[in-house]
Amino acid sequence: MAEGSNYDYLFKVVLIGDSGVGKSNLLSRFTRNEFNLDSKSTIGVEFATRTINVDGKTVKAQIWDTAGQERYRAITSAYYRGAVGALLVYDIAKHATYANVTRWLKELRDHADANIVIMLVGNKSDLKHLRAVPTEEAKTFATENELSFIETSALDASNVESAFQTILTDIYRIVSSKTLEQSSDPIKAPTSDTIPVAIDSAAPASGSKCC
């Protein structure tokens, strides 16, 4: 399993949002290019990874897909710790899932690192005839709350790649600029290559990109 060590950065990202908005399908679309109309509900958390290229660097995303049901909140919020990014997903065809975004933001404030990068994701953009949340409204909300914003469809794959690419790039930019600021410090290698990079203690992972 040495496959895990060929990267420059390792970022832990969480997928959160109401049950049924399509978090698991976004993840399977991004990591395996799969979509399932009748996927099973997520119990607790599920984990997947994918490595992408950002500004010439190899960035590995370690993604935790969480269960949306309220009852699991106690379990899932433990996974926010150490996450440098969060995709907060709602369903563009179900207004209630958008209305709940505020509650999810509070969850993040309560349990995640203060400078976690958050992206608001309106999923199921293929359901045009059922749209209940106008794009502009969500965009404005995102700007007001300093979130980036994108609409995706796990079904037809539109913007899925772009959503992950954007948040990982944002994280990378923050992390690498911090590393520059602190360039007098010696670059610390994490003790284990599976420990995610936290924004506060930003440092490139000890990727074994030898010769």
Binding site: M1, G4, E46, F47, A48, T194
Partner: peptide
């Protein structure tokens, strides 16, 4: 016992 964090989690899930 031969796997790392990621391997273990992926296997057990």
């Amino acid at each position: 016992r031969k796997m790392d964090f990621q391997g273990i989690i992926m296997f057990l899930q």
